[in-house]
């Protein structure tokens, strides 16, 4: 038996060496969390506005169109637990913070990463931000520690292979950039729009998928995270603004009212206790097919329009904000049309 065990260890040695090499390589390959963290470190000293939330923030809210200096800390499927944890850990490093915008789409109050096909994201939060997942079970996963396990060995090998082949042609040995690219202010503009995403059958499938992810039982922990986040910011004199981004009308028509009423009640509660402002653009008629990436996300064009409306509503003015990207369409003349400050 001892000889068998020794042979097994010898057999495993080359595999462990290869794994170690790939782990080293992936430290040189950026991901959305590592880029966001690096950018936040640069922006922290000057940022006065922080944008939090899931893809509804990450793609839909464009920091250049808000007044002041804003940083978008949203990410795909980022739950309120991670919004809360990120702010709790970074608040002391944001000396000029005066405002936090939390994008809360229809799904967010009833969604947790565990048990969904997005759950691997929680390991990214641990690896890059040192935020452990809620509950002990995910903490036993190899992906808590191993980037190769998280991003898959296939990705590690293929990115290394590509980099090596480029290196042979004179390029420095570096990993591929994050796709889609993330701007220095944390925003990830999406383009071009995908018209088939707005077909009724696709919208129905999408909301059915979302309803599969949503659980009334997840509302209590999400409410607790939101309450903790808002009370923490309130205690530091930072204003909190909750916003629901626009969705395609066919999507809005299919939402479950019992869920949505519960979320609205939560927002009202925060408004009463902490003076939080809430802007609901879910059914804003001003957004057309040209603004949407899919049924519940805006494309770059829509995000610029939406952020302008939101900025005007927040600041209570209609002043036009300079366009730093030089890519956006002509400035909108509307201000808070369709938005409903509550």
């Amino acid at each position: 038996m001892r000889a068998t065990t020794v042979r097994l260890c010898l057999f495993l040695l080359p595999l462990l060496a290869c794994w170690g090499l790939l782990e080293w390589w992936l430290t040189r390959v950026p991901g959305s969390h590592s880029v966001k963290r690096a950018n936040l470190e640069s922006a922290a000293a000057s940022a006065d506005t922080l944008i939090l939330g899931s893809s509804g923030a990450y793609w839909d809210i464009a920091p250049p169109y808000l007044s002041g200096s804003a940083y978008n800390l949203g990410n795909v499927a980022q739950t309120l637990y991670y919004d809360d944890q990120l702010v709790t850990r970074w608040l002391d490093k944001l000396p000029h913070l005066r405002r936090v915008i939390i994008a809360i789409p229809y799904v967010s109050m009833f969604f947790q990463l565990q048990g969904t096909d997005e759950e691997e994201r929680q390991y990214g939060y641990f690896q890059q931000w040192r935020i452990p997942p809620p509950g002990w079970r995910p903490r036993l996963d190899l992906r808590m520690l191993s980037d190769v396990a998280l991003r898959t060995p296939l990705f590690a090998v293929s990115s290394l292979e590509t980099a090596l082949s480029q290196h042979l042609h004179g390029a420095p040995l570096a990993g591929p950039p994050v796709d889609p690219p993330i701007r220095a202010d944390g925003w990830c503009p999406r383009w071009p729009p995908e018209p088939t995403e707005l077909a009724d059958s696709v919208v129905q499938t999408k909301i059915a998928y979302h309803h599969g992810l949503m659980h009334m039982s997840d509302e209590a922990p999400n409410r607790a995270s939101l309450e903790h986040l808002v009370s923490l910011l309130h205690s530091r004199g930072v204003e909190v603004i909750i916003v629901t981004p626009p969705v395609w009308p066919a999507y809005a028509a299919l939402i479950r009212q019992d869920y949505w009423k519960r979320a609205q009640a939560d927002f009202r509660g925060l408004q009463e206790r902490y003076g939080t402002r809430y802007f609901n653009y879910m059914r804003d008629p001003g957004f057309t097919a040209a603004d949407f990436l899919d049924a519940d996300h805006l494309n770059e064009h829509g995000a610029v329009r939406f952020t302008r409306l939101l900025s005007a509503a927040i600041d209570g003015s209609t002043a036009q904000i300079a366009d730093p990207t030089q890519k956006s369409p002509p400035a909108e003349t509307s201000t808070t049309d369709g938005s409903r400050p509550q």
Partner: peptide, 19 residues
């Protein structure tokens, strides 16, 4: 046999896709 095992392990590793 070892080459065969390594080949299978590499195939399994490169096929792995998260949860």
């Amino acid at each position: 046999r070892w080459v065969l095992y390594y080949a299978v392990i590499v195939i399994v590793m490169l096929s792995a896709r998260g949860t």
